[in-house]
């Protein structure tokens, strides 16, 4: 009994303290939770990516639309100039 390793209580406690089925089952449940957590994280990340992509497309379209309208104005002015020139030519011809 001098050597603690020979103490039957120690052996008894050590044997009973080994992981059992409940511990394995708890590990399985925790791993399932981690998988769910990762899926949620992936979904959130993809949603964020999708949102950013949509925002980029919307911004691009807005910019294009703005540019298009501005250039439309220029075209309109050019057309007016042409009409004026044509009118002037006609007037001159008149």
């Amino acid at each position: 009994m001098d050597n603690p390793k020979d103490d039957p209580w120690d052996n008894l406690i050590r044997e009973a303290s080994q992981p059992d089925q409940r511990d394995m089952a708890a590990v399985d449940r925790a791993l399932l939770k981690v998988r769910q957590h990762n899926r949620k994280h992936q979904i959130w990340f993809r949603t964020l990516q999708g949102g950013l992509a949509t925002a980029a497309v919307v911004a691009g379209l807005s910019f294009w639309s703005f540019s298009h309208n501005s250039s439309g104005g220029v075209v309109g002015e050019a057309e007016a100039q042409l009409a004026y020139d044509a009118y002037s030519d006609a007037a001159g011809g008149w």
């Binding site: 080994q18 992981p19 409940r22 511990d23 394995m24 708890a26 590990v27 925790a30 981690v34």
Partner: peptide, 20 residues
């Protein structure tokens, strides 16, 4: 993910016993 699960199945039961 499989590597993580292998690692946790190796060490997790003792952590579960500790927590319990």
């Amino acid at each position: 993910e499989v590597a993580f699960e292998t690692l946790m199945r190796r060490h997790g039961p003792k952590a579960a016993a500790l927590a319990r």
